[in-house]
Design a protein around this nucleic acid. Structure first.
Lengths: 348, 348
DNA sequence: TGTTAGCACTCATGACCATCGAGTGCTAAC
DNA sequence: GTTAGCACTCGATGGTCATGAGTGCTAACA
């Protein structure tokens, strides 16, 4: 079931008719982005009650805080609290069709070259199916294990430092080598590293081992130092989580982004892909998490986020979609959940 | 001097006063995005003639096609032809300030980890200084030379195929290895590749050599085939030029993009970074090139592009900025030119 | 007691219109 | 050739009004 953020303890007791009316209003409003009137509710959903009755119920729902009226004599729109109630107590995730599942499986498993491509594929899938903007936060690779370090001579005075992990991830950096260091030296140094580091986690590397090596080898001081510094830099640069974003353009179809200012704020939020993860709501473990409007951190209070965590080699990543508050939560939740499950299956 | 695209052979003969008026209108219009009236011209630029005179001249300029009138009783705006004349015959590039030059030099040379970072820095610099959207097309690396191929065992049944070029660029791919292939085998195979490929250009690799190796080695057929296929795939995937884009957000400040449709078209143009290079005007060698409105390929006919080629290891890349037709060409041209020169200096 | 029909009321929206003013083109005088 | 003057154009602005969707309330009804 859906994890509720559950701010402002929501009354769970709505009679069936109120629930039905709330649902109708939410579905209509999400579809049209216009306030929904009492007549529209009875007409569209073939309710066996009159518009006047619906009006009474709507007044009640407004009183309870689930609906809002932009102005007298307009229809009602769901409040954020209304969406929250719907999401927590009424919604059923919309399942992907068989073709969509197939598409998803292909995106993850078929003909992919490397991890980066899988991630890009999944992000694209998410944004394409939900028609919102998707994001994937890829945890940094601290916990992957060291496999090789190699120093390959490139050109005179230059060598390539290669660091390979058990996942086949590679970090590399060009370094300068002082004169008088032979190819054999480079190989020896590589071997030394490999001995000391074998099967260690990357995050452990940074602590003391570098120092150990430094002390262990006094001759060839200069080149070793260079190599060590380079390794240190590599590890540093791999420290940040990566963020992949897809489907920004989808937002332009949402009427809420007709407002240029709102659009600009959204785009600057995601322009630097790395900053966005500071603005995302806290993820809670691997479960599905829906964060609506004001429930979000500062710069996203006029949007909603449907996201889930996933475990990748012991690190927790997140992925999900960002859309307007007037979001098709059922579809977004269904899609994110499907992706989460599939990833979980595959990684275990 | 600026290369002229020179469609529609432009009359070079405008008397000094007309030139001055045209210039005033262009500067004002670029700044305000509003039609410029005769009064505004004399006032703003302290001309020693009356508004009525300016009106006469403006009527002439309109007749010649350098100005347009959105409607009677509005001021004039420069036509694309007007901009073209200005760019070809009147404009002087605006030079970067000393601080900006310093910033540029830092972006390219200081504390950069690798080529990717330099490119990102330059793109960022371009968009930041010009306040338009910048792009850099990085040519594929066909002509770089083969240095190493290595097969590193990762986990049982898995190995990492590494391809290193003289520039320290790396391509890698995880491959499966059949049972019964030892580490020593992998090393031998790597050595074989290295012998055959040593110091060859990557683009040559794809032709016949793969076949040669295949024939040369009948034992260990399976693993070799896998490796060869992987190499082939790697080369294929490095076939496309990379495109880096920066400063998309700047466009939102341009009033021409208040129009949501125009904005959407622009964003979809650059959403997939790789598609944009099909829409860019043809670059002509390494010189500065300005392409205005209709002079552009289909999807960019309501924008302008200021770009230059640059040579990187014998391959031609391009970089530049995209902006509205109402562009500060002098600033864009100055900035792109400065970057071009600096890159040229550094690469030689 | 819950439901419904009826009706007066509200308010956003869009059409219509008068006004205003920036800017032009033209003419006649300098 | 230049300029002052003037009538004219046309978009922008703002006010008025009719329209219609939608409400809340009241009274009648089951």
């Amino acid at each position: 079931m859906v994890m509720s953020a559950n701010r402002g303890d929501i009354e769970m007791t709505l009679d069936e008719r109120k629930r039905q009316i709330l649902q109708s209003i939410i579905r209509d409003y999400v579809e049209t982005a216009e306030p929904v009137g009492s007549r529209a509710v009875v007409r569209k959903h073939d309710l066996k009650i009159s518009a006047a009755t619906v009006r009474n119920e709507m007044a009640d729902l407004e009183e309870m805080g689930y609906l809002e009226q932009p102005h007298t004599s307009a229809g009602r729109i769901p409040s954020e609290r209304g969406f929250r109630y719907y999401v927590d107590c009424m919604m059923e995730n919309e399942n992907l069709s068989e073709e969509q599942m197939e598409e998803l499986r292909n995106a993850i498993t078929k003909n992919v070259r490397d991890l980066d491509e899988v991630i890009a594929n999944v992000a694209h899938f998410l944004s394409q199916i939900t028609r919102y903007t998707s994001f994937i936060v890829v945890p940094s690779i601290h916990t992957s294990q060291f496999r090789y370090l190699q120093l390959l001579p490139l050109n005179p005075g230059e060598a390539l430092l290669l660091l390979v992990t058990d996942l086949g991830l590679i970090m590399h950096r060009k370094i300068e080598i002082p004169k008088g260091v032979s190819h054999q030296d480079l190989e020896n140094i590589g071997a030394l590293f490999n001995n000391v580091f074998a099967n260690r986690r990357l995050e452990e590397l940074r602590r003391t081992d570098l120092q150990v090596i430094r002390e262990e080898l006094h001759q060839r001081r200069k080149i070793i130092d260079t190599a060590l510094d380079a390794v240190d830099l590599l590890l540093q640069s791999s420290h940040d989580d990566r963020v992949v974003i897809s489907g920004v353009l989808n937002m332009l179809n949402e009427p809420e982004f007709k407002d240029l200012d709102k659009l600009r704020r959204f785009l600057s939020l995601i322009e630097e892909e790395n900053t966005i993860k500071n603005h995302l709501p806290q993820s809670s473990g691997e479960s599905l998490n829906i964060s609506i409007g004001q429930e979000n951190p500062d710069d996203m209070k006029d949007m909603s986020v449907v996201m889930a965590g996933y475990k990748s080699f012991d690190e927790l990543g997140t992925m999900g979609v960002i859309g307007p508050i007037r979001m098709e939560y059922w579809r977004a939740a269904g899609t994110v959940e499907a992706v989460r499950m599939l990833i979980k299956d595959i990684l275990s």
